[in-house]
């Protein structure tokens, strides 16, 4: 059974149809990508999955349950985590505090327990702190846990955002342009890191990405969106040779860069 199944999803903003009759599945344990020109509706689709937007038509089923009509916190508790295109960390909080907030779905103690330092609360908090330290190390931010996240370097902020998303122990991780703004070395590191997430932790990953090297390098299945509608899907090589895809990119005047990137 597919982990995520979207059927005929449509999202409109006034007269503009941002996602149009979109049907889409992600298998458990996969690394899949959604690509498409700017404004194709990729992030809008992410927002529909995570409950930021309510879509008008169709349905999105995750792990057997519909996400439709649920709030973002409920959807996160179902096991979907995400990162944001323009990094949205809790910028005045420290690195480790960001990760601790990400762990919310696993925490259960109440404020009364915190007030009286009940043993269960103390234990949960110290376990959470240990887990957060482990995650810090896993994403390569060891030693930076007490820094205010705003002061981290760009690459570290991206990594922290992924760590925060992973802290929720998601079944499905949505990454919105995880390598945007990175230099080639950082991009290669992040690509490797995403693969490790799946291989070592078994998290299913769906990413939006513009860097074709990343997309072609790690995706098993690629879906191409244009004007909110699916124009192609398949493995990396099939997508690279698909005339519709090339046209979608070329037609936008992104000719040179797109072809070069697609041929990579």
């Amino acid at each position: 059974m597919a982990l995520l199944e979207a059927t005929n999803v449509t999202k409109r903003f006034g007269g503009l149809t941002a996602v149009n009759d979109f049907t889409f599945t992600v298998e458990k344990g996969a690394i899949d990508s959604i690509i498409g020109p700017n404004g194709a509706g990729k992030t809008t689709f992410f927002n529909c999955i995570t409950g930021f937007y309510q879509f008008e038509e169709g349905d999105i089923v995750f792990n057997g349950n519909s996400v439709s009509g649920r709030s973002t916190d409920q959807i996160t508790r179902m096991g979907i985590s995400r990162t944001y295109q323009n990094i949205r960390l809790f910028s005045q909080m420290t690195t480790i505090e960001n990760i601790l907030v990400g762990m919310e779905p696993q925490l259960h103690t109440s404020w009364i327990g915190a007030l009286f330092r009940l043993p269960s609360t103390v234990k949960e908090e110290s376990d959470a702190l240990d887990e957060a330290r482990r995650l810090l190390e896993f994403v390569g931010l060891k030693g930076k846990g007490d820094e205010i996240s705003r002061n981290l370097s760009y690459g570290d902020q991206r990594r922290l955002e992924i760590a925060r998303a992973m802290a929720a122990k998601p079944k499905l991780l949505l990454l919105d342009e995880p390598t945007a703004g990175m230099n080639p070395r950082e991009t290669a590191e992040t690509t490797e890191f995403i693969r490790r997430l799946r291989d070592e932790l078994g998290i299913t990953i769906l990413l939006i990405e513009h860097d074709m090297r990343v997309v072609m390098g790690i995706s098993e299945h690629i879906t191409v969106l244009d004007y909110g509608a699916k124009i192609a899907e398949g493995g990396p090589s099939a997508i690279q040779n698909n005339p519709k895809v090339i046209e979608a990119y070329l037609g936008r005047g992104a000719a040179a860069s797109a072809t070069i990137e697609l041929e990579n």
Binding site: T50, F52, T72, Q92, V101, W111, A168
Partner: peptide, 25 residues
Amino acid sequence: RLRDARLGRQWMALREDEDVAEAMG
């Protein structure tokens, strides 16, 4: 006590970015 506990972090997250805080669960 509350500031240094889970509730304090929830409050802080809320203060920083309400949408993302909600999306964190």
